[in-house]
Simulated scan of single mutants.
Amino acid sequence: MSNIRQLRDKQPENEKITINLGFVDLGRIDLLVQEGFYSNRSDFIRTAIRNQIDAQSEIVSKSVERHTMELGLRDYTRADLEAHLARGEVLHVKVVGLARIASDVTPELALKTIGSITVLGALQAHPDIKAALADRIT
């Protein structure tokens, strides 16, 4: 008997994006980094994005409320989906942030319980789940 246990895979805490910048903007960023205002380009870009999100926070809040979306991290476990199935309910996932479907959820269970998925941000799920729900993900 082995006492080795499988640890769950570490999920990334952020998503990598790629942007294109003009040379002048990039030069200005590099100058601010060189002058010590920011530690690196990524630090500047993250700060700029946060400032814009903060400036638009009221609009974001109203939109989330209007669309009845959840804001932040939302985990969907096997137990959650089985409870919906037992009640005969269809789940409509609407998340602004990160939605995660547990690794022990089967494609069959997901198909029986999830009617639609709308995620503004990132969806983490096993590739089989994503494939099974492909026509329900917007």
Rank of each mutant, 00 (worst) to 15 (best):
G121L: 09
K62L: 04
V95N: 08
H92F: 06
T106W: 10
R100Q: 13
V60A: 04
L120D: 08
E89R: 11
G72P: 08
K94A: 07
A55M: 09
R50I: 06
T68D: 13
T118P: 00
V95E: 12
T113W: 07
I59K: 11
A48D: 07
Q56W: 04
D104G: 08
H67W: 00
V60H: 06
D54F: 05
G88W: 15
I49F: 08
I59P: 00
Q52R: 13
A83H: 15
V90S: 13
L85P: 03
D80I: 07
H92S: 09
E58A: 09
A55H: 15
G72F: 11
S42V: 08
T47S: 12
K112F: 08
H84I: 04
D80F: 15
N51K: 14
M69P: 02
L111G: 01
K112D: 15
P107Y: 02
A48F: 05
S116C: 04
I114F: 09
R46M: 00
N40F: 00
D75R: 15
N40V: 01
G115L: 02
V96K: 05
H84F: 15
T77C: 11
K112G: 00
G88F: 13
G121V: 09
N51W: 04
N51A: 12
D54V: 10
A110C: 05
A79E: 15
L71F: 14
V90G: 01
V95G: 07
S103M: 05
I45Q: 02
M69F: 06
D80L: 09
L71H: 13
H67C: 00
L120G: 03
P107A: 05
G121S: 10
R87G: 10
I114Y: 12
D80K: 13
V96E: 06
K112R: 14
L71Y: 11
Q56L: 00
L73G: 01
E65F: 07
R74I: 10
V60W: 06
A48W: 03
E89F: 06
V95H: 06
V119K: 03
S103N: 07
G97K: 05
R41V: 09
E82T: 12
Q56I: 00
V64Y: 12
G121M: 07
T106N: 09
L85G: 03
L109H: 11
R50C: 01
N40A: 02
G97P: 11
L111P: 02
A110E: 13
D80W: 14
D75E: 15
I45S: 00
E65Q: 14
V105G: 06
G121D: 11
G97M: 07
K94F: 03
L109R: 09
R78T: 15
V90I: 15
K62N: 09
R74Q: 14
V119W: 05
G115R: 03
E108Q: 14
I49P: 01
I45M: 08
I114W: 09
S57F: 00
I117R: 03
S61H: 05
V95Y: 11
I53H: 01
T106S: 15
A86L: 14
G88A: 11
G115S: 03
D75S: 13
R78L: 10
K112I: 00
R41S: 00
I101V: 14
N40G: 02
